[in-house]
């Protein structure tokens, strides 16, 4: 990764800042730290970062506000750090434009995996290949075909749209609301049980053990994620 990609780390706890900085630096990131939301937004404005890491519980302003503010002028990926008890805030942050979140406490491995997932498209250019493979499944978006072990799998139009939406945001978390919006349209964001049923159908057709999925993952209380 040359020249070094920059990341703004907005976190008020120096201990957490320290190890997140160290971990990111081992991956070649240039890290700028900010201990509050206002300072973070100023840094973000001047440094032209490739990634924003934001803690939800900041001393001066709500992390969701930081995300909302930043999203008005930038499309750079945002990774949220939050505590387990803040499900509602997580959803708010995702709906405000955040790309993913990490629940405290988290390990270095999880942190780097998330960072890679949210920055993959931006840093490696859009993958234009219409073919995507995971496990024994091969999806060809250009031909609307899904094969499993070389055998065609029949998907209903809704299932196909759902799969397409998840694949297009591979590795990133998709809130229930956002998935409903993409698959059923903006007027169907309330009855999420449809989403759960169709997700279950997809798992039945594409996962080896639908009850212990490896690729079509549930993010409890928040949404779903496709993990390649």
């Amino acid at each position: 990764m040359t020249p070094a990609n920059t990341v703004i780390l907005i976190e008020d706890e120096p201990q957490i800042r320290r190890f997140v900085k160290e971990a990111l630096e081992t991956e070649g990131w240039k890290v700028f730290e900010a201990e509050n939301g206002k300072r973070g937004l100023v840094e973000a404005g001047s440094r032209k970062p490739d990634l924003l890491v934001v803690d939800l519980g900041l001393p001066d302003m709500d992390g969701v506000e930081v995300v909302r503010d930043f999203r008005t002028w930038s499309t750079v990926p945002i990774l949220i750090l939050s505590a387990r008890t803040e499900e509602r805030d997580k959803i708010l942050a995702l709906d405000a434009g955040a790309d993913d979140y990490l629940t405290k406490p988290f390990g270095i491995g999880e942190l780097l995996a998330r960072v890679r997932a949210v920055t993959r498209r931006r840093l490696q250019g859009l993958e234009t290949s219409p073919k995507q493979c995971f496990a024994d499944v091969e999806v060809d978006l250009s031909r609307h075909s899904v094969m499993r072990n070389g055998v065609p799998v029949h998907l209903t139009p809704t299932e196909y749209r759902l799969l397409g939406s998840l694949l297009a945001n591979s590795g990133k978390i998709m809130s229930h609301r956002r998935l409903m919006q993409e698959v059923w349209g903006p007027n169907h964001t309330e009855s999420s049980h449809y989403l759960r049923i169709y997700m279950s159908h997809l798992r039945q057709k594409l996962e080896i053990d639908p009850a212990q999925p490896i690729h079509l993952l549930t993010e409890t209380g928040v949404g779903y994620r496709f993990e390649p």
Binding site: E13, Q15, R18, F19, A83, K104, P105, I108
Partner: peptide
């Protein structure tokens, strides 16, 4: 939770 997060993260840094 904040010190626990620090502990988990820094132990990971040490392990790596």
């Amino acid at each position: 939770r904040t010190p626990l997060t620090g502990l988990v993260g820094m132990a990971d840094v040490l392990a790596l």
